[in-house]
Amino acid sequence: MKLRTGVLIALTILCNSVGNVLLGIGMKRVGDVRAWAVESVAALAWRMLTTSTIWIGAGTLLLFLIFYMLLLSWADYSYVQPATAAGYAIVPLLGHAIAEEPLSPVRWGGILLICFGVALVGQTPMRTTAVG
């Protein structure tokens, strides 16, 4: 059970991180959402539907959701949710490497602190409620 949980958490983090970065790249290509007129939203929706990066990102996030649901079938939500936060180290790294987004030292410090908190949560029992 522990190995299965570890593997699924790793897959969850990977799919969530990659999916978020791909969506970020895709939405930058689509353009800024500032106007809420029907024509503007329709044009925006069309640009989103014809941007392949958004489709791949959404598909990757769908995989993330499936893995996440499976984890939640046997582990606590308050365990799974923090355990998947290693993505906070991966997302900025991917955003920096692929989309060339800037990262300050303070932001890196915050991300490390988040990961430390997540590690602390990870020391607690995987499940505290009965299943079914």
């Binding site: 308050s78 923090p82 602190l113 430390f116 908190g117 997540v118 602390l120 949560v121 990870g122 020391q123």
Partner: peptide, 9 residues
Amino acid sequence: PRWAGVFLI
């Protein structure tokens, strides 16, 4: 420990 982790986050 879970609460501590949450507040650290």
